[in-house]
Amino acid sequence: MLLEDLINGLLFGATYSLVAIGFTLIFGVIHRLNIAHGATIMVSAYAGAAVSILLGGKSYGALLAAFVASVTTGATLGILIERVAFRPLKDAGYLAPFATTAGITIILEELFLKLSRVVPIFHPEYTPFPSPLEDLSFHAGPIYLRGVYVVIFIVAIALMAALGFWVDRTRSGRAMRTVEQNPLVARLMGIDVGRVELTAFAVASGLAGAAGCLIGVSVGTVGPFMGTNLLMISFVVIVLGGLGSIRGAMVGGLVVGVVESMTVSLLSARYKQAVLFGLLFLVLVIRPEGLLARRAVVRD
């Protein structure tokens, strides 16, 4: 059954990839970590859950509506966060956004703790996210696969490809790449750096929204702290893959998924963290800039 562990690890790892892609995209453009990425996932998940519950939660139409709701909520929240937590801190050094995004995360988590007590369709600790996808499963030979993980895997790959296309082939994408490499030069070339950054935030947070919806569906519930739990793993993923590298985030997520799956299977869940960080140390010792980083030196 090691094969099943491996495959399931890969599929589940795509969840991490989905979260990490947005996270690393923001870093690539502004060289800052958006700690509120986790909270964005959470809020979008709640939005999706609400839509799904209101629409009955049994049809794929409802699921699609929920997905759209999550992505839009994510993108909107992302723009808000950029305005409040990043724009005012342009000259502030690399630590300042940690504080503001952490503050925003605390606010959002407490807000949703309160909301989940007050809003009728929500529940105090966990709110259900009904969907037809949750229990979908099939067998590929002797291997048991959960449909929702396959969907997440496909969506993650598709989004990665779409992002790649955007960055390589479109003007706005190329503008973003220029800003990534050298904001000053970009400005001199007439690129509206502010708009590029805003776009990056919107896209990345929209991705977070997608992740929120799909994760909510796969777990079947949403809770105020679901984002923070995911964020810690995302740190590991984006560093493994190389900060700023989207392909790295994808691969890193899959690697982490497999490592976790194997650890639980061969050892026990309580060693997951230790093994993961052990792996991280190893990678950083051999390749301090991550597996797939594009640059050898990281400017901070």
């Binding site: 970590l33 560093v239 900060l243 991280l280 301090p288």
Partner: peptide, 8 residues
């Protein structure tokens, strides 16, 4: 350096 050190 930087965030890599932070994470390690």
């Amino acid at each position: 350096r930087g965030f890599y050190l932070a994470l390690a």
